[in-house]
């Protein structure tokens, strides 16, 4: 369904998403909890991303209409913040912290090692959708620098070897 049709179809009284996807009901509940307040946009986008994995246009438009916000405003907010993603992510996530403490302790080498073995750059996802690589500006885990987050788990005192072993688990699966 094109964006254009989408807008028409949501113009009615009911804001229920036509797909009937259960996740929209959860999102509706979240918005209701925030009383559909426009200033809760970021919270609601967080929820939407948690539910759907990423924010596609259809979803953004649904949020815009529910909160009675201009679509451009919702898109603008979604693209301003690094943690929102408008494209799907890979099955596994690897986040290399490049905060100062990690930087001083060799984060650049870790990042290079990941980029080398996964053949992608930070911000990208492997072609087989196994791994998304990103960088963080500081996890606040400076005490255990350099740190890398694998699928949400912060791992400290990393070395290129340790990181390489971990990635082998992720990337080796399809081989």
């Amino acid at each position: 369904m094109t964006t254009r049709q989408q807008i028409r179809s949501t113009k009615g009284v009911s804001l229920k998403h036509p797909s009937g996807d259960k996740r929209f009901q959860i999102l509706d509940a979240t918005m209701k909890r925030h009383q559909y307040q426009q200033d809760a946009l970021i919270e609601i986008l967080h929820k939407a991303q948690e539910l759907f994995g990423y924010l596609e246009n259809d979803l953004l438009l649904y949020v815009a209409h529910s909160l009675k916000l201009p679509p451009s405003r919702v898109y603008g907010v979604a693209t301003f913040y690094h943690l929102f993603s408008l494209a799907p992510k890979g099955i596994h996530r690897c986040v290399v912290c490049t905060g100062t403490a990690c930087y001083v302790k060799g984060a650049a080498a870790l990042l290079a090692a990941v980029e080398q073995s996964a053949q992608i750059h930070a911000g990208e996802t492997t072609a087989d959708n196994q791994l998304s690589l990103s960088i963080a500006r500081c996890l606040g885990a400076c005490g255990i620098a350099p740190a890398v987050v694998f699928d949400g788990t912060v791992c400290g005192h990393q070395t290129p070897e340790l990181v390489g072993d971990r990635l082998k688990e992720y990337l080796g699966k399809e081989q």
Partner: peptide, 19 residues
């Protein structure tokens, strides 16, 4: 409010509706 800004920093750009 057709227009808004999207992206950040040097990646900022103006958009109409959902880009």
């Amino acid at each position: 409010h057709t227009w808004d800004m999207a992206g950040r920093g040097s990646q900022s750009h103006v958009i109409t509706d959902l880009n």
